[in-house]
Amino acid sequence: MKEQAPARLLWMVAGFAVWSSAFIVLYSLQGLGCAYGWPDPAYRLVLFAVLGLHLGAIALLFRRSRERLASGFLRPVVELALWAALVATLLTFAPALLLTACR
């Protein structure tokens, strides 16, 4: 029965939950850094490190999902959603982090 627990549905949103977390953390750090005038190169590296952590988290979710989910309807959908989240996280933030931070 554990195999079929309704909480498994949360896998569908797991990847994009990480994307949301990256959004919130990076946007907040960007705001904080500008408000307090953090020095640029270090500040930018911190932002990239945060992005890296989130990408790593999605990669981890990939591994876990393969262990946890039996085949069936959910598994391919979760896999697609994770791919989408991974690409979305990379494309939403990586180019932006190269731009002017506080103007």
Binding site: F16, W19, L26, A88, L99, T100, A101, R103
Partner: peptide
């Protein structure tokens, strides 16, 4: 699923002219 989430990460595109820094606008 992607649609649902991404649609939340877009809100400030109604606020490009308010003086938000370019990096944040780029998100």
């Amino acid at each position: 699923v992607a649609f649902g989430f991404l649609s939340f990460g877009i809100w400030a595109h109604h606020m490009y002219t308010t003086g938000i820094p370019h990096m944040a606008l780029a998100f």
